[in-house]
Amino acid sequence: MRTLVLKIDVDTYRGTLIGVPRLVELLLRHRADASFLFSLGPDHTGRAIKRVFRRGFMQKVSRTSVLAHYGFKTLMYGTLLPGPDIGRCCAGILRSVGEAGFETGIHCWDHIRWQDGVRHADARWTERELQLATKRYSEIFGEAARIHGAAGWQMNPHALRLMQRVGFSHSSDCRGTHPFMPVWNAEIVNCPQLPTTLPTLDELIGVDGVDDGNVHEHLLALTRDAPVNGHVFTLHAELEGMKLLPVFEKLLLGWHEQGYTLTTLSKLGAGLDPYYLPRHEIHWGRVPGRSGELLVQGAEFLNERLA
């Protein structure tokens, strides 16, 4: 069976308020399943201005029209405007996603704080951020979260260990090619990783003649052949749930035509036996079209390397 997971990252207050309901309606209409991963604390998107000094950031901003996608007000949150508390202000919307039958999980507490700070954070900082998110999730949904997907594909060894300690069944914190058990500096982490396997729309648009009008064709060409363990496609409520909603609908139609079952992270993970999953090193790397480094799936780990 051809399987493609739709992993929806919700980064901002505006994306939650506007993009999420639009995506729910579209997915229900096309009978497609998906995993929604929520930012549950304050929206401090405006603090991302610090990334102006990161290699490739301004190039990405100019290609993808950040202002058009996120809106001026969102880009002021956390600087000139106080950041709205997403989980508190939008709890009803978050619950409605689960009530509509979709899987929900944790993206982060504070998206900008995690994405820009977790790589070099200590255990105490990391645990506090995750505790805030897990507590808020339980308050909203009345149960513990089982799925996690890191903001910006950013983690650290403390965060990876917490995935197994907190009790997540699966996590999607990196980029890669197929499901695996992560290994960090020879330490095996007992929480399966279901990595994002496909490029995101904002990584493709504006490169090599790809634009809003043909990006779906480029992506559908990449999914013409289906891997054994399926694909994971990450989309964003702020992009595919708003300005790029028509593009996403073309993708849904195309994937249905290609014979894919559009599903969730948990359903993909349920068909995998962790005991037989390959162990792969996880390390920092770069992905075309995205600024800065993020976690990527590395070489398969062999116990003989420890001998």
Rank of each mutant, 00 (worst) to 15 (best):
L4I: 01
Q258S: 00
G167D: 00
S169R: 10
A32M: 03
L26C: 10
T200R: 14
L26Y: 09
K73E: 05
V66T: 15
G176I: 11
L194V: 13
V287S: 13
H120V: 10
H120G: 07
G285P: 01
R161T: 04
H158P: 00
D225C: 10
H69V: 09
K135S: 13
R51E: 10
F248C: 07
Y13T: 00
P288W: 03
A299C: 08
G254M: 01
P192M: 01
P227N: 06
V287D: 09
P182K: 11
D9P: 12
S172F: 09
T45I: 08
R47P: 09
G149N: 00
L220R: 09
T104V: 14
L40Q: 02
S291P: 15
I93G: 02
G15R: 01
V232G: 07
S96H: 06
I49Y: 14
A144G: 12
D225R: 09
D116F: 05
G46Y: 04
R175Y: 01
T234H: 04
G213N: 15
T234W: 00
A299M: 10
H231I: 00
N303R: 14
L294N: 12
E238A: 11
R63K: 05
V189G: 06
H44M: 13
K50N: 03
R14L: 00
V189F: 08
V61R: 00
E129Y: 06
Y276S: 06
V166Q: 10
L295Q: 14
L17N: 02
G259R: 06
Y275R: 12
L17W: 02
A145N: 03
N190R: 11
I140G: 07
T261S: 15
V287N: 11
T197C: 01
E240C: 10
L268K: 06
T177G: 11
R165I: 02
L245S: 03
R279S: 02
M155K: 07
Q59F: 08
L277A: 02
H30G: 04
G292M: 12
G142F: 07
E103R: 08
V232T: 05
R22C: 07
G167A: 01
Q193T: 07
V5I: 01
Y13E: 05
H107R: 03
R29I: 06
G71A: 00
P192I: 01
M155F: 07
R146N: 03
A133Y: 02
H158T: 04
H256M: 09
H107I: 05
N185G: 13
V228K: 13
V24S: 13
R161Q: 11
E281R: 14
M181S: 05
G254P: 13
R29M: 08
G271S: 05
V61G: 10
T79A: 09
K50C: 04
Q115H: 13
K267R: 15
W153E: 09
G167V: 03
C90E: 00
L17Q: 02
L81A: 10
